[in-house]
Design a protein around this nucleic acid. Structure first.
Lengths: 196, 196
DNA sequence: GACGATCTGCCTACTAGAAGGTAGATAGAT
DNA sequence: ATCTATCTACCTTCTAGTAGGCAGATCGTC
């Protein structure tokens, strides 16, 4: 027991880090092999093909995200606070360089050249985030926690685009603080005016 | 004369299209060879190494952008109109699928794994767009053509992030119209209120 | 409890094909 | 005579993936 095949988890984790920096074609089984300390062939034992590996990786990435969202919704009632926590999650990841980019953002930009099985999972991830944010916007709009100027689903897409665009800019400039600089005003705009 | 080595232009053009869909590691000299109808070795005659090829490609991409900006500034005086033309340029490219993604957006997301010579050029592209947009924001703010809620450079970064985030979302969902849906409200927000 | 059978996780050794790149020849233009 | 653009033929290294073996854990059955 104990290490109930957590080698496959290690493989997924190292693949995630590698994809995060160079995308689908930016890593190989040999790279993972070096990080995990296992032979190439042994990786094929856990994930017969590269497509299997990345499909599973993205599927879990989405499932983990869904679980986090459930917890977040349970602990934070206010819609604006939820958006702040979400933005802050990425701000931290980018600033401490732990996970400075979303795996699905990288894969989405490579989408046309991705194996279809992987592409499907990536698209599903974006649909999940989008529908979650839409629900948050709707709720916040109705109970006055958010100040929307467009329809909830449009505000959701705009917010998502801002987050992912800010992520890209941080990486492009090599300046992690750019993310918060952009998200600050975006969140202010959604904050209801206090009085009058 | 006549085709004063426009083979090298064809090589660059096909490389651009290939990078646009799969990034730096998503294409090979063999791919270009097929598109251009020339042998692999002949590509090396024009661009000794892959790094040379992509460095030159990004350098020209930036120079072309700089030239377009000069023309745009000459023909369109109003700052808000400039932003609209810029957004509309991308909206068209995405909707007619001619150039549905920015080469530098894709390369920027792969930045940590890119050869340094290429990375430098990509960063330079983003700095160029950023400083141009900042100048547009400043001018528009001063002469009342734009309604800013933050400092010009922050508005510039926010606008840039929105454009590139919207580009990514369009690709992720496979829905070109998402781009305009997001950019519409973003531009409205920058439009000065007509009366009172 | 003992004994073989299967399962799991890893290994070495290999393959075919693709990668980026080189050497050297050839034909035509200057 | 040299330069340019192309070619064929090749090299080396890396790629994903396969075949088959081996040690140890688990399991069924006597």
């Amino acid at each position: 027991m104990s290490n109930l095949s957590n080698t496959s988890d290690e493989i997924l984790a190292s693949a995630r880090n590698l994809i995060m920096s160079g995308g689908y074609n930016g890593f190989s089984y040999a790279d993972i092999s070096e990080v995990v300390g296992i032979r190439k062939a042994s990786i094929h034992h856990h994930f017969p093909s590269k497509v299997d590996l990345v499909r599973e990786l993205v599927k879990r990435y989405r499932e983990d995200g869904q679980a986090s969202v459930v917890t977040l919704e349970q602990n934070v009632p206010d819609a604006l606070d939820i958006l702040k926590v979400y933005a802050n999650h990425w701000a931290k990841c980018i600033e401490d360089a732990s996970r400075p980019y979303c795996v699905c953002a990288l894969l989405a930009s490579e989408l046309p050249s991705l194996p279809p099985e992987v592409a499907t999972e990536v698209t599903a991830f974006f649909r999940f985030i989008s529908s979650w944010l839409t629900a948050v916007m709707e709720r916040g709009s109705k109970n006055g926690a958010l100040n929307l100027t467009s329809e909830p689903h449009i505000e959701a897409e705009a917010f998502l685009a801002t987050v992912y665009g800010a992520m890209l800019s941080s990486r492009a400039y090599g300046k992690p603080e750019v993310f918060s600089t952009i998200l600050g005003p975006a969140l202010s705009r959604l904050t209801p005016t206090v009085s009058h």
